[in-house]
Design a binder for these strands. Structure first.
Lengths: 235, 235
DNA sequence: ATAATAATGGAACGTTGTTCCATTATGGCC
DNA sequence: GGCCATAATGGAACAACGTTCCATTATTAT
């Protein structure tokens, strides 16, 4: 979606006809981030796309960190509200958590930059949205109140961990000029050439690495934690 | 540990007497990162500490990403080799994994920047070290070979997730001029003022947040996953 | 109409990672 | 012991970035 901006000519200097807005800035930022990765969003490229100067943007936004957090929050808000629609009425809390987690995975896969954007806003809006949605299911599951935070943060840390690694892989591959398959191939061959004395396990893992399915493995991890939550333990 | 560097005067231009080395550069980088956070390491501050120019550093190091990865690897190498000493002979794989995880937590707590440094080197040396140590215990645990990667990556993602969030909290607090307690206090009061209709769970969590113990909660998450690994499941 | 404020956009600043290059030490070879 | 290719140094310079500043223009209230 490319912006079309009317421009008014007044005494030699150009000025946009429609005024800027915070939402417009955020939406354009998302387009840039999706299109060119984390490095694709600068105040220059952004102001160029918006047919304005860098200074004008600062009227609507505090700084770049604020901008990234806002862009991230927009995605998370959509993500955490969307899956409500596809819910079957009698779904178990576990099933809903799986759904929420998968929605997060897909969002982080489509917008790899949110993985590192979440790193800029601890305890803020984007995080709260996720905690809330997951937490409500934790409560329904009957987890004792004292363990609410531990349980939610275990799931959250796992999800954000995967997101961070996804972002890292994408970023790394982009700078090397590889796509996902080439990247995995490279890591796999590197691991297969490790010293068998020092790294027997990692070496043996190379084959599995080459053909694994990120999404499936992610879900398997969620299931592992959910199973842990359901198992008895000493308090 | 402050470096003392002898300088030789030759025909008007200064030159260091002892030559630079990659290890020396990395060790000084670690000091800077530990002392002043992620933003504390620049090629200017680094070259100043080493009593040289930015250009000289590039003879020993490819770029900043390389430098960060190397610094991170140095810490991880020490961390993954150290706990071997304190092992009781009959320790279960679970106990060893807990020990390894705790060692990682403490390392990431002491050097918060490695959380984000790990984000720059997917599939590379630092990651391989962790995978190997954990993986060996996974094998001993008797996890079927097909599930090796899923299991290790679940633990790894959780650990790195916590590390990433730790780094984020530290970084965020530093820019706001707060220490850890003030930061938690701020988040907690912010959460307690959330809309009760929209965020009932997060709101109720505020109190728990204020008084929680990061290290304990981290370990609880590890136990959750370990319990999940031990529980029967459909393949 | 006039004053006050909101909003714009481009120039400019300081800092960053990185490159370039003139210069200097070092180690092998005749 | 002098010579030379190469290793290594260090400072200047570059491009790009986030951010600030300010002269200017639209918009609103009085």
């Amino acid at each position: 979606m490319v912006q079309k901006v009317r421009i008014k000519r007044t005494s030699g200097s150009l000025r946009r006809e429609e005024s800027l807005s915070r939402e417009q800035i955020i939406e354009t930022s998302i387009e840039l981030l999706d299109g060119s990765g984390e490095g694709g969003l600068t105040f220059r490229t952004l102001s160029e796309r918006l047919a304005t100067g860098p200074g004008a943007i600062y009227w609507h936004i505090a700084n770049k960190s604020d901008l990234l957090t806002a862009a991230c929050d927009a995605i998370i808000a959509r993500t955490m509200n969307a899956p409500l629609a596809s819910l079957t009425p009698g779904a178990t809390p576990q099933a809903i958590i799986r759904l929420l987690a998968l929605a997060m995975f897909d969002a982080m896969d489509e917008h790899p930059w949110i993985g590192s954007a979440l790193t800029r806003a601890p305890g803020q809006s984007p995080m709260v949205r996720i905690v809330e949605r997951i937490g409500q299911q934790i409560r329904i599951l009957g987890v004792p109140k004292k363990e609410h935070w531990v349980t939610v943060s275990a799931l959250l840390n796992y999800i954000l961990g995967v997101g961070g690694r996804n972002a890292a892989n994408g970023q790394f591959a982009r700078t090397q000029g590889l796509d996902r398959t080439d990247f995995l191939e490279a890591v796999s061959t590197a691991w297969s050439q490790l010293d068998p004395e020092e790294y027997p396990f990692a070496r043996g893992l190379a084959a599995q690495l080459r053909s694994h399915d990120d999404r499936k493995d992610f879900l398997a991890g969620i299931d592992l934690i959910l199973r842990g939550i359901g198992s008895p333990h000493r308090t």
